[in-house]
Design a protein around this nucleic acid. Structure first.
Lengths: 219, 219
DNA sequence: ACGAGGGGCACTGTCGACAGTCGCCACGTC
DNA sequence: GACGTGGCGACTGTCGACAGTGCCCCTCGT
């Protein structure tokens, strides 16, 4: 009985609600990396059948929050320091493409303005969880504004793993998500300097990678 | 009764076999893009229960071979010409990262040799399906040899969508997969010229994108 | 004391059935 | 003839139960 039962107020499917509940249970740290996620236990906690929670778990597996162990048993995923570095390099490639497409677009000025507005939200948040949301929200917005739907999808499929990495190294990650860490990206986009923008994104990602990789290694 | 029943010879799970059967049924064109994939019909065809085929379908959905329509109904996916172009740009970014990492690696020479060997297989194949496999195999190898596991995963999550795109424009795609289209990539890697390698990959992807996008638009 | 064997336990894999919902078609009404 | 309406069929959502399979611990024999 680790997670609260599902409320029956909204009209979404039980699977969706179970998925959400499980995701937030993992992301909030209620389940630690490596913890076994038994279908029967979760079904009991959530008040749904095993089949339903099973589907939610499979979805989380695709997201990378959950990984398969022996005999199909699922457990909360955790990343090695090496994987964290790899992950951020892939992110850099993806977001590098995003800024390139944004700069090349005729709507560049409007896009830059949107991004600058989003930048503001990064300083407003104090609570760690809110900071994480603001940071990921900014980067997702960056991908969305590229107008490349496949890019957005690819990025989102990385998001789960990113959250795992952040979860592991949640201590003192605040500086990485500060406003002035992201401002140079917008600056370069505004100037229309694609190469500089890519370089800045790359540096941002490299720094973040080291930050979280060290935190992972330390834990 | 469109697909043959599952053989009970091997020891893999029914879900895995169903998944494989459905995937190959879609990829072989037995189901056309837009076709509705009913759980009951498929369960009957495959000789498994609805729950089992359901899980296989959900997996295919994540792979991008299948997409959700109204009221959760699933149908065979198809890509617009725009999405095909987007897809190949993402691929270019990913494989660009791959060649960069390969060039930067101390094992560059050995990697280049491996790739050159793989290059040979591209000319051997005559049948379209085999050519597709050889081509995708080469690019997957490229990602694998980068040593970046997250990159490989990201690329593989794009693979299903790629196959859909290829499926749509299967006519006369042969030249795109020829050996000399890929050789320049290996050449640049061998020379250790990362920028040139990235540029070559980019051009290769752009050309392929146009090729398949046009074929998609025509169909 | 220590190793082999066996039985229970805790899982997941798979299945068949019931329930709710949406679209469609025929029918009756104005 | 057009339109509302009621039943019907086809789907997916969800559930509870049975089956198979390792793992662990307990027991028994030496």
């Amino acid at each position: 009985m680790s997670i609260e039962s599902l409320s029956a107020l909204d009209r979404s499917t039980l699977r969706e609600r179970s998925l959400e509940a499980l995701r937030s249970a993992i992301l909030s740290g209620r389940y630690r990396p490596g913890d076994h996620l038994g279908e029967v236990e979760l079904a009991g906690s959530l008040g749904v059948s095993r089949g339903t929670v099973r589907e939610a778990l499979r979805h989380l597996q695709q997201e990378g929050l959950v990984t398969a162990g022996t005999r199909g048993m699922l457990r909360v995923n955790s990343l090695t320091a090496i994987e964290v570095r790899e992950l951020f390099r892939v992110r850099a490639a993806l977001e590098g493409l995003a800024v390139r497409e944004i700069v090349a677009s005729p709507r560049r000025a409007a896009t830059a303005a949107t991004l600058r507005a989003a930048l503001e939200r990064l300083s407003d948040e104090d609570e760690p969880a809110a900071r994480i949301e603001a940071d990921l929200g900014f980067h997702l917005l960056l991908c969305r504004l590229s107008g490349n739907s496949m890019l957005v999808e690819a990025w989102q499929r990385l998001e789960g793993r990113m959250r795992v990495a952040i979860l592991d190294g949640s201590a003192a990650q605040a500086p990485m998500m500060a406003r002035d860490r992201h401002a140079p990206i917008v600056d370069a986009i505004e100037r229309g300097d694609a190469d500089a923008a890519v370089r800045v994104v790359d540096e941002h990602m490299t720094a973040a990678a080291e930050h979280f990789a060290e935190a992972t290694a330390a834990s």
